[in-house]
Design a protein around this nucleic acid. Structure first.
Lengths: 233, 233
DNA sequence: CGTACATCGCGTACACCGTACTCGAAGGAG
DNA sequence: CTCCTTCGAGTACGGTGTACGCGATGTACG
């Protein structure tokens, strides 16, 4: 059987496999994109491939492993632009692609925050950012933490963006009932003045759209990182 | 029935409730702490209270709502230290408490990254940080994003900390099989030299323990934020 | 004090889930 | 052609979230 990140031994003997791990990951991703991550079940994924649930277990040891594969598969399609030598521009480029990908697959942000996946594509992405950050005088530890800072921030930003997007378009995840219960709840909250800042956030809304907020936030972070860099002689 | 954040109307008439939302949240949290978040089921939570699963639905509309309650309940026990006037010290204080709480309840970090909960305690925490950030010349939008930056980073940091902690002590979430499959996998990865930085991270390990890494990372972030603050006249 | 009635407790039932076990089918190697 | 390995997938089991409904319960009112 295939272990989490080690594909089967490919011995040449015996009946050749009819499916592939990539195929399965793509089927699962298609379901998640269309019906949400909760709709991804072994049976449904298998059915999408025209087979039975248990067949998947020849390729994937777990449902958990399948989810990790989905994540890694999508990270793979983020794509890593060639470094230009300008570390800020390079980090910005991958952050923007990360955001675009997570917006295209809304279920991603919720999964990426869990235990890291350590699939080949995730590791390639790590390598890319580490290489970009190398030579700035940071220790290995600090490079890693800088990478993780940007990545965490993008994740959090997209999460908020998705939440607001779903609230605006009536219903996203929580079906129609959410709206019906959220509206009066927000009313109550803002009414009794217990949460003045939150009230302002709701009422004044945001001055800018998410694109410019993202760009500005990213600039702020990169500037902050630059400011804490060791001085170059 | 009680909506997500609006407790029942409390009409005075009829049979008084035998349980409470807080009681249920605490029972669920106890189970999550002891057996992991996946062990939290309506039946088990109800059993811990000595009742049947369906009784919970008089207090909680959903399992999802129960999870939101768990999150908010725990955020409530983070506690918000009185602001001192030094915004960096104040942000640092709540970040440290946040980390401590998330380490005490390892399942939290995975949930907090999902859609925000907007329970009373979560909102109180938002209010606290916003008040701390007020008066620095930031716009409402920038204040919010600064808060979210720190919060996301803490979340990501703790997530990594938990992962490494679990790997070190043999097995955390993924039972014994994880270790057995992870070790040879890491071997392969570091062997063929495809991931040089990741290899170095594994081999060299970290120079410092998590406590000092956290403190240093936090300092770096706060310094970065300070560097991007508008100039005070 | 008796009674009506709002509310709660929770058993039953259903559809669905992940997956252990199992065996027959399939196809390349010799 | 035969063997032997590998794959495909049905069956079954224990568990899940929760819709529905009914009987128990305690309060407010007559």
């Amino acid at each position: 059987m295939a272990q989490v990140w080690m594909p089967a031994p490919e011995s040449g003997r015996g009946r050749p496999p009819s499916y592939s791990r990539a195929q399965i990951a793509e089927a699962a991703i298609a379901i998640a994109d269309e019906h949400g991550i909760d709709a991804v079940s072994m049976r449904k994924v298998a059915a999408a491939l025209g087979t039975g649930a248990m067949s998947l277990y020849r390729y994937v040891e777990n449902k958990q492993a399948l989810c990790q594969m989905m994540l890694d598969h999508i990270v793979g399609e983020i794509g890593l632009p060639e470094p230009t030598g300008d570390w800020q521009a390079d980090l910005r480029a991958v952050a923007e692609r990360q955001r675009a990908t997570q917006l295209a697959h809304p279920w991603l942000a919720g999964m990426a925050a869990g235990r890291p996946a350590m699939g080949p594509n995730v590791l390639r992405m790590l390598e890319h950012s580490m290489a970009v950050l190398d030579g700035l005088g940071l220790s290995l530890e600090d490079m890693l933490e800088t990478y993780s800072l940007v990545s965490s921030w993008v994740n959090g930003f997209v999460q908020e963006e998705l939440t607001e997007r779903d609230i605006r378009r009536g219903t996203g995840l929580d079906e129609q009932g959410w709206q019906r219960s959220l509206a009066p709840h927000l009313e109550t909250l803002t009414a009794n003045g217990e949460y003045p800042y939150f009230t302002r956030i709701l009422r004044e809304g945001a001055d800018h759209d998410f694109d410019t907020r993202f760009t500005r936030g990213l600039t702020r972070i990169l500037t902050g990182i630059a400011a804490t860099l060791p001085p170059t002689p």
